[in-house]
Design a binder for these strands. Sequence first.
DNA 1: GTGCTTGCAAATTCTTTGCAACTTT
DNA 2: AAAGTTGCAAAGAATTTGCAAGCAC
Lengths: 157, 157
Amino acid sequence: MKMIFNKMDKKNQTKVSQIWEHELTRSGGRITPPRQVILNVIASSQRPLTPQEVYEASREQLPHIGLVTVYRTIEKLEALGLVNRVHHSDQCQTVFRSTPSHQHLLICTECGQSVYFDGLEIENEFQKTGETLGYTVTGHWLQLSGMCQDCQKGNIQ
Amino acid sequence: MKMIFNKMDKKNQTKVSQIWEHELTRSGGRITPPRQVILNVIASSQRPLTPQEVYEASREQLPHIGLVTVYRTIEKLEALGLVNRVHHSDQCQTVFRSTPSHQHLLICTECGQSVYFDGLEIENEFQKTGETLGYTVTGHWLQLSGMCQDCQKGNIQ
DNA sequence: GTGCTTGCAAATTCTTTGCAACTTT
DNA sequence: AAAGTTGCAAAGAATTTGCAAGCAC
């Protein structure tokens, strides 16, 4: 199994924000201060965020920003496939940057820090499972949870 | 990989309802007509249901039942571990009977018909994945989606 | 009888929509 | 200038809470 540890660093944050701005422009959208702030908040986050959390983090940089703008920007980013909705059992509406290739999330239960990983072998198993049950498997949804290295060491995030 | 095709039949529905009633009693709860109806609706469903759907199906048997009672009964069943919340990308609050052993759901995208399956080998892969990423994997969440045999044949559910 | 349960109404929370003013290109 | 975007306020949807009456044990 191939693994890709794609934790986001400062350099990549900027890059992701730039790509997102480019995609927005390309689809006829416009780059405004509120959007730049929201894009940056989501792109630089190590964990999935709720609309409320995006809103609160954005207000630190742009106090008069509106929650509605956050919702509409997320909607646009999702339509462009740049962010994904992430579901937990209690939290269903968090957003996290998506990956170009087909990967899955591993989320830290303590601090929420998340990484993507590749799971081609696992996906082959899914097909076999479906055949046994008489289903044609067309999609899957996999998320792992656990504790990241920082939290194992007892660090505060 | 061991597979368990545990589609629910009439005989099992009754049995599940009875077990649920017993668990309710054991935990100090009471068996009332509204609860019996709700339990039966959920136990006999081949697919995850929203609170609204449980409500509507229950009203056919007990017209004056309240949506609030459905919410509270689901809450109780979930607390007892008898039903699970099932999430899709758009639908986050559906309920489906849980399994005693550790299994995963395969949901038909057409009709919602769902079956549980066993995936021990897959779970071993999850552990390996976690190690590679520096995480201690403590939980996972896996759902497959596809098309069931009936829908492949073009039957109407 | 005691204590859990019900259903109504109201409150709360989350998300979406209408709209006039304002920016971006 | 044209078209997209913003933030406010209001609407809408989903879920939870308070409470008096009712029911199970």
